[in-house]
C-alpha cells in the first residue's frame, strides 16, 4: 500500500503536468493564429498599396 500522502502528491503532480502541457499547447495555437491573422492583414495592406 502506497503512503496516501505521497500518493496524493504524485497525483497532483500528474494533473498539474496534464493541464500545463495542454494549456501551453492551446496557448500556442491561439498565439500562432493571432500572428498569422496579423501577417495576412499586413500582406493584404501591402498588396493594396501597390
Amino acid at each position: 500500500m502506497i503512503n496516501p500522502v505521497v500518493s496524493l502528491k504524485y497525483m497532483l503532480a500528474g494533473y498539474i503536468a496534464i493541464f500545463s502541457i495542454l494549456g501551453i499547447y492551446l496557448a500556442s495555437l491561439v498565439v500562432r493564429w493571432k500572428n498569422l491573422q496579423r501577417d495576412l492583414q499586413m500582406l493584404k495592406d501591402l498588396q493594396e498599396k501597390k
Binding site: Y10, M11, Y15, I18
Partner: peptide
Amino acid sequence: EAVMNHVQKIFYFHISN
C-alpha cells in the same frame, strides 16, 4: 484503489491521452 491510492487516478487521463 486499494493498493496505489490516489495516484491511480492519473490512470484515467493517462490512458485517455
